[in-house]
Write a protein that binds this DNA or RNA. Structure first.
Lengths: 245, 245
DNA sequence: GCTTCAAGAACTGAATTCAAAATATAAAAT
DNA sequence: ATTTTATATTTTGAATTCAGTTCTTGAAGC
């Protein structure tokens, strides 16, 4: 059981390597503190740094081979992103991801995806649409095979492609950040048969609206799509029990 | 002319003291780098640090009476928030706020306000609604008196109150951050008579929908309200000419 | 006069140092 | 035996230091 969860988490980390995060890397300059921040985020996702535990500065410095200065710079940034909390004179602690915060984050992401959909209808290229259609059929295949890990990955890629098609850099940036925050639990979700079927139907509608460039409809669907997930799916499974405040 | 702009900018800085920013301060711990970040943000808003110019580390250290360590920590955070850009081996530069970025930011804020409206209908208390109604009538008075500065201030307070009423902390946090990013130009906007009348009508509808707890309608209005502003108002006046890329 | 290059000064990024605070350990008292 | 107090150790926050880079200045060459 624990092994299964671990496997799933590392898969979710891998996913991000394959999708939005790395595709943005062209712009991103390689600062030392930035690299450290990436590593720490990954360790949080992987569970190597447990939510609620203190950040062992010295140990991480040795592990990364850097001094405390860039590490602490990274911690300030991670704090402003919500990954850690700064405790006065007690360093930093890994943030817990409560069900409330998860719900709130997915609500905001829904709103952003809704906007993405509207904007994407105005800006998407034929090539991008074709790519999304291809991902869609691939996803349907995974659904039919009950391959949930690959389904979730492809599903995520579709949503990211729509966000990118919005051509709104602020939107892309904020969405990416929020997605990172919930990464550690999103891909450990166990979808119920019922919900899964509903999500797939949503995606059929999403593709149809996108083909028609029907921004109104696409916006509506996407604003509900993720929020529904929060309500319908086994939310309790997504945020680890120990993370409930 | 320059004096007038300065006055307006300092007013916009003051505004934030009176509204969302400080009301959140209960939670916020006073870290040194955090204080420095606040000061630098204010200096950017006030124009003391000009967009496009390099950040004078040494000078600011002397001015704030701190060493470079906390200052540089603040700069990393400000970079992740988009206020400055980090140039490898060349320190930090104050970000320019282009018209595109402004437009993109207001679009995202619109989407967030739309969600706020929907959530506020479900969660708003009678006291909060009464407060918003009071602000609304106050704002109408400023409109009739053609007092644009106070109008914009009160307008902002209404929108913030709705966002807070959403009871979604992630939403409040992201909105606050985006609002900060555009603070420096938002309150220097010159509204046309025509647009101004339209905005006021929107607000009548907003209050009405809020009273009815009509989340559908309120969401729709709010999703358009700010975006319209972008299209209708004198956008060119909002982003300083020198900020156009 | 203008450009090119070199030496020095200033600045940046990151490691190190140091004082203050927190934590752990050990001794004393109940 | 348990709690309290005192001391030592560790950790944190921030200043300082230092190597490497960029910028400035001025002389040499075209």
């Amino acid at each position: 059981m624990a092994g299964g969860i671990d496997a799933c988490l590392s898969c979710s980390a891998m996913l991000c390597t394959r999708t939005l995060d790395r595709s943005m890397d062209k712009i991103k300059q390689n600062t030392l503190h930035g690299e450290v921040a990436v590593r720490i985020r990954d360790m949080i996702d992987a569970g190597t740094l447990a939510p609620g535990s203190r950040v062992p500065e010295k140990q991480l410095c040795e592990q990364f081979g850097v001094s405390r200065t860039p590490l602490r710079e990274a911690l300030k940034v991670l704090a402003s992103e919500g990954f850690v909390e700064l405790l006065p004179n007690r360093g930093a602690r890994i943030s817990k991801l409560t069900i409330d915060t998860l719900q709130h984050t997915l609500e905001v992401m829904s709103a952003l995806e809704g906007l993405s959909g509207e904007l994407a209808c105005a800006h998407i290229s034929d090539a991008e649409l074709a790519n999304i259609e291809a991902l869609h059929y691939q996803m349907l295949a995974y659904y039919k095979n009950t391959n949930m890990a690959e389904y979730l990955l492809t599903n995520q890629q579709i949503h990211e492609a729509i966000v990118v098609a919005s051509r709104n850099d602020v939107l892309i940036d904020v969405y990416k950040n929020l997605n990172q925050r919930v990464r550690r639990v999103r891909f450990s979700a166990e979808l119920s048969r019922e919900y899964w079927a509903k999500a797939v139907q949503d995606h059929e509608d999403i593709i149809a609206a996108l083909r028609r460039r029907d921004s109104e409809t696409l916006g509506q669907i996407l604003r509900r799509h993720l929020s529904d997930k929060v309500e319908v799916s086994s939310l309790a499974d997504m945020a680890e029990p120990k993370n409930l405040l």
